[in-house]
Structures are given as structure tokens and as C-alpha cells.
Simulated assay, not measured.
Amino acid sequence: MNYRKAIAATAVVASSLLASPAVYAATSVHAPVLAMFGKSKTVKLTIMNDSGAPMEVKAGEEVIKLEAGKPTTVSLPAGTRIVSAADTATQKAGTLIAEANSSLNGATIHIK
């Protein structure tokens, strides 16, 4: 009688060990669907030209003209780099001004 119980117990343990990965794989499908179909975040910020002369900045591939003393509001995808487009008295062309991210949403950037 003990021999039959031992065989039955071994069969139950072996089947549970073999079945658990298959059951786990069949029941736990947690694909990041939102990551695949989500829109890229946009950041809305204002750039203020505090210098005395008009200047140009590049946001990604787009050139933005900033008039002296006037704010310009832009909406950019997160990760877009804002750099100076031309040499000025205080900056060289290609100098990084800011990189759009969620912490800058609604902020005003002053450039001198």
C-alpha cells in the first residue's frame, strides 16, 4: 500500500512541476499595449528673448525666430533640443539652451 501512495505522490509532484510554467505562461499576458500605441508627449513652453536684438533658435529641425522682448510659445515633443541657431554676443551657434521634457511644461525660458 505504501508503494502505491509513493508512486501517486511522485506523479502528483511531477505533474505540478511540469504544469506550473505552462499555466503561468497561459494566464499572465501583461503586454505593454499603451507603450506601443501611446502618443509621444508634447511640452508647451514659452521662450522669451531678453536680449536687445532679434535671434534665431532651432528646436529639432525647426528654426524659430525670436523678436527682442517678445515671448514665443511653442509645443515640442519631449526630448527635443533647443539650441542657438547663430552666433550672438552671449552664445555660439549650436549651444544647448534647453531640452524639452515634462518638467518644463508651462515654463518660460529667458534667453539673454
Rank of each mutant, 00 (worst) to 15 (best):
T46E: 03
D87R: 05
K44Q: 07
E62G: 01
P71V: 13
T88Y: 02
K41G: 00
G60S: 03
V63M: 10
A26Y: 06
A107Q: 07
M1D: 13
A11D: 07
L104M: 04
I64K: 04
L18F: 14
S40Q: 09
E62Q: 06
A86D: 08
A89R: 11
G94I: 07
I64T: 01
L76K: 04
A31M: 15
K5D: 10
A93P: 08
E99M: 05
P54S: 10
K41S: 07
H30F: 11
A59C: 03
N49G: 09
A25G: 13
S15R: 08
L17H: 08
R4S: 15
R4K: 13
L66Y: 01
L76G: 02
A78T: 00
G94Q: 13
A98L: 06
L45I: 03
V57D: 01
A93T: 08
S103R: 05
I47A: 01
G79E: 03
L17C: 12
A11F: 11
A26N: 08
V29S: 15
N49I: 11
N101C: 04
E61D: 12
H30Q: 14
A85W: 03
E62S: 04
P54Y: 08
P77G: 05
D87L: 05
K112G: 11
T42A: 00
E67A: 14
V43P: 00
K92G: 07
A89G: 09
A9H: 04
E62W: 00
S20R: 12
M36L: 15
P77S: 10
